[in-house]
Each structure stands twice: as C-alpha cells, then as structure tokens.
Design a protein around this nucleic acid. Structure first.
Lengths: 119, 119
DNA sequence: ACTATTGTGTTAGTGAACTAATACACTTTT
DNA sequence: AAAAGTGTATTAGTTCACTAACACAATAGT
C-alpha cells in the first residue's frame, strides 16, 4: 500500500486513517496480512515505532489484530473500520465549521462557499 | 476584546486570525490602540511572548504597527486585514477538501455532505 | 524629574510527537 | 536445529511550540 503523509501533522493518526480507508474501500480484505511494522515504516518513510503505535491504536479499536512473530492482520469484521471512517468525516467537518465560524462566517455562508468551491 | 483560543492548536496563528477578524468586522478601527502585549496576554490566558510574536507577524503583514513605549495600533489601511481573512477562508477550505479526499471522498461527495450538515 | 507602563530581546525550561538504536521473545522458513 | 523475520519493549535524543522569567529602552502621566 502506498502512503501519502503530511509531514506537518501528527503521523500516527494519519497512518490509522489511511489503514481504515484501505479497509473500508476493500483494498485490504478481512484477515489479510499487512506489511510488517518494519516494512511499512520504510515504505511510509517513518520510524518503525510510529507504525507500531498506530497499529496498536487500531488494535484497540478492533480494526487490526497482531500475531506475535507473524505479523499484523485485518480484523474478520470490518465494520469498526467503516464506522471509524464515518466518524472521521463528521469530526473533520465539525472542526472545519468551527474554524470557519471563528473566522467570521455563518453556517449558511460556509455552505455557499463550499458549494462554489473549485479546486 | 475577548478571545476564544483552542489549546490544542498553535496559539500564535489563532491570535493573528482573531485580530484580523476584529479589524475586518470593524470592531477595531484604523489607528485604534490595542491592549498592550501584557494586558492581551493576561486576557487571553497566554504568555506575553506569544502575543508579542503574533503582533510582530501582523506587523509584517501591514495589519498592525507598534510605537515603542506606547503600544500597538491598527493600520490606517485595513485592506491587508480583510485580504488576509479571505485568504484564510480559502486556505482552510482547501485543507478541508484535501483532508476529506484523503479519507476517500470525492469533491461532489464532500459538497453533499456539507450541504446536509446540521450542527 | 520621577514613576509606571510600554515594546523588545534574551535565555532557560517544558511537553508532545517523533526519531533513533537497541534488545528480546516468538514464528516461520530453511 | 538454525537463521531470518516478526511483534514488542525500553531508553535516549530531537524538534517544535509554547511557557517562564527576566532585563533594557522608550514613552506617557503625574
């Protein structure tokens, strides 16, 4: 899997998010083995400890599980991953609205601004 | 002026943004004197050095100017402040779109999601 | 003139989030 | 059995953003 990490934001949550997304998109199947902590760290250009921490967080959410000496695997039930992804959408959007309101925009003004957005 | 600062984000840019907004809203008039660095620091619950750094950044953008021994003042021409505010809107929105796309959403999906948003 | 208040500069300390470098135990492969 | 690869744990170092505590110079109010 390929990583696109923003060096200016905390890496650990970014890794969590991208693994969640790959699972939700079906590009990582239930019980499929991930790259090892060391491999993924090299691939993502990040320290192995950071990957380890991210995977442990995902384990706590029942999105991954580990087998000592063998590797990390996608959980049998991927609903935790999709739920987390949806929660992230809401979270990021709420934060965006809060930020824009702090910059003097009303809810309706934000909606109009987004509607007219072209990238 | 009253401050609403999010402890979890860098304080300096937040201070800059809020001063910009107050100027753009006309609640700080051209050549009006701000609270002193020390006063503002107490008011915002922040270290004086942080306020100092924020004001210096705003000075570099021609939004504020300082008079040694006297205080900080709003620039005669407030267009820099309103320009900065609009730039911030674009910047935050671009970042939001980038984040949501990294979480698997298309541009159109984001627009729909925002349209239906209720807080 | 005196004093308080101002902007300004410097140095040191803190916490979070990583990086770096190991070491150890367990599996898998050979 | 041996070697290589794995998860896991620990300790130390780094960077960034901010806090903390001053010191100094210029202005304003008395």
């Amino acid at each position: 899997m390929q990583w696109s990490l923003d060096k200016n934001r905390p890496l650990t949550p970014q890794i969590c998010e991208q693994v969640c997304l790959q699972i939700a998109l079906g590009q990582l199947q239930p019980n499929e083995r991930l790259y090892s902590v060391r491999e993924a760290a090299i691939e993502a250009g990040v320290n192995p400890n950071t990957v380890q921490r991210a995977f442990e967080l995902l384990e706590g959410q029942n999105i991954l599980y580990s087998v000592r000496g063998s590797g990390w695997y996608v959980s049998e039930d991927i609903s935790a991953a999709t739920d987390t992804l949806k929660a992230l959408w809401r979270e990021k959007t709420a934060a965006y609205f809060a930020t824009m309101q702090a910059l003097g925009m009303t809810t309706q003004a934000i909606k109009n601004f987004v509607e007219e957005w072209t990238e």
